[in-house]
Design a protein around this nucleic acid. Sequence first.
DNA 1: TGTCAACACGAAAACGTTTTCGTGGTGGTC
DNA 2: GACCACCACGAAAACGTTTTCGTGTTGACA
Lengths: 340, 340
Amino acid sequence: MKKRLTLKLIAKELDVSISTVSKALRDSAEISEDTRQKIKAFAKLYNYKPNNIALSLKNRKSKTIGVIIPEIVHHYFTTVISGIEQVANEKGYHVIICTSNNSFDKEVINMEILANGSTDGFILSVAKETQQKGDYHHLTEVIEQGMPLVMFDRVIEEINCDKVIIDDTLGAKKAVQHLVNLGCKKIGLISTIDYVSVGKLRTQGYLEALSENNLELNESLILKVDDFDQSEEEISRFLSDKSMDAVFAVNEHFAIYAIKAFKEQGLDVPKDVSVIAFTDGELSKRFIPSLTTINQHGEEMGAQAARLLIKKLENDDSEDEPFETIIIETGLVERNSTKR
Amino acid sequence: MKKRLTLKLIAKELDVSISTVSKALRDSAEISEDTRQKIKAFAKLYNYKPNNIALSLKNRKSKTIGVIIPEIVHHYFTTVISGIEQVANEKGYHVIICTSNNSFDKEVINMEILANGSTDGFILSVAKETQQKGDYHHLTEVIEQGMPLVMFDRVIEEINCDKVIIDDTLGAKKAVQHLVNLGCKKIGLISTIDYVSVGKLRTQGYLEALSENNLELNESLILKVDDFDQSEEEISRFLSDKSMDAVFAVNEHFAIYAIKAFKEQGLDVPKDVSVIAFTDGELSKRFIPSLTTINQHGEEMGAQAARLLIKKLENDDSEDEPFETIIIETGLVERNSTKR
DNA sequence: TGTCAACACGAAAACGTTTTCGTGGTGGTC
DNA sequence: GACCACCACGAAAACGTTTTCGTGTTGACA
């Protein structure tokens, strides 16, 4: 096992001081051409690489970004990460990813650990549990310590920081409007219970679209799924005997369960009924029929979040700069689950 | 912006030495009950947390595991990560994830960066490009420096380290055997070109299963997809006029394209033809018909990899310990794309 | 020959810890 | 009162860097 080469070892080997080695490697003018060449050659030969930990300690910055997401086994989040990574790497940062598993405690612990020097700033989508609890002390603490924080997707309004969101309400409106444009009149909604902010916002978009088109609101056409694991049965029950001509689902899974349920009822999608979903993932593309969706542009979101964070990190007097909220535009992806 | 509290600040504030503070906080017997209480109270009040970077530098270990995967937007890898995280967190480690995007250069760079102190060891699935190139210097270097390395999924035989794999050959055999048991005689294979090791191994399993069942090998029933982006058309072309009664695809996507192609030919899956896939993901579960698959148990794989790595990390004379290769058992998940 | 600038390098502090060793003071014992 | 042990704490080194400042040597110039 080869020992890792350090400045000290090089210095001893070449019989100069540590400072000289350091300076030579950084091309300081203080060092004569001769010694510099000699030291650089030696370092290259034995493949010297500076120790990042020592650098972090010295510079008081780690050049890494901490990302905390509710779960990693989730296509949308991975696209966001992908976007973060691209921008971060471009600018010489790297990325630590931790998952909270939607647990408040794990979110807190992860943030504390990463905040103790490992990370210069955070990009975060809060855990469901955190949203329910309404306890944000870990976020405010981090901010007070001067660590920039960027929230994305599931953000918390009360917290003062940069944010990247999509306009869930508008996106939902677009979806419903699309259905209306296709001639649908009796449009159902499959959403989640309201403490999940996206569920709430998308529901709102649905309502707005209805009222803007002078369509009557019918509460019995709205389902708020509580338990994800039970959602398939819940949806199937909900859809029976409602004679809708369209359904807007706040995610792919609900949409697919809806299509299954319709099929079982002997209805054809999209001939008899149109289905549109929020969230554009692998499933939407490959399903038969492929799903018409509202695309959230995860990569773009991650990229913007990373840009915001790095901007704060590299700006010394960022203290005074106001916080930004970037809104990512959603897009309608037309496929085969809605009629033409 | 509150300054982060350090031992030095506490020491100054309480008018004792740094050493005293450190010892008090670590419950050293050297410190009198009185002072200890005082210091601990102060630290707690102002929420002191030791700086991880300084600890890493001091202890020469970071208590973090570096994970490098080809791509994160890939369900299977996220399940592996999930498994790694669980075990790692249990044992007090955290996890840095980097993606190579299947690029050799990015893999090398990421390893070098993480190896410079950020990480105590690696869990890695190599990039496609690395497999093609056959250049493994970055791996051997890391190993020579005494950093434990565990490879999973896409492993490289020549490299001497712990490994966690699934028995691709056996898994493929299981799949084909299942088809044979269902009475299928003319079984097609949709695989990838051979430098992707899993493609090769699964092809081998297919061949073995055929010969064990005394089924004749028909080269025209084997497709080796080269370009992922073109795979849909390639598969559709391949499947026309072959009159197979079953297909084994080495991943979900190929299986789904196959099903689509069959549908377009007016064939019903599973009535007219059975389809079975390697890799059990979201798609398999939700697709209609849902896919019969060979499950790779990603979480289990990640968990085992993490256990192996941590074992090496915590064992001082691990140098002498032989390397292990753990084989994760694949499982057959029977769903609706194969007849009963 | 004495002065001074330029040059090339080294010593040391700093980042925040932990740990070894040393030391001043107290109390007890003979 | 002298000696010793023990207690409670501090100084300093170490981890691997970077950087400021100091310093010895050289050469030019008057």
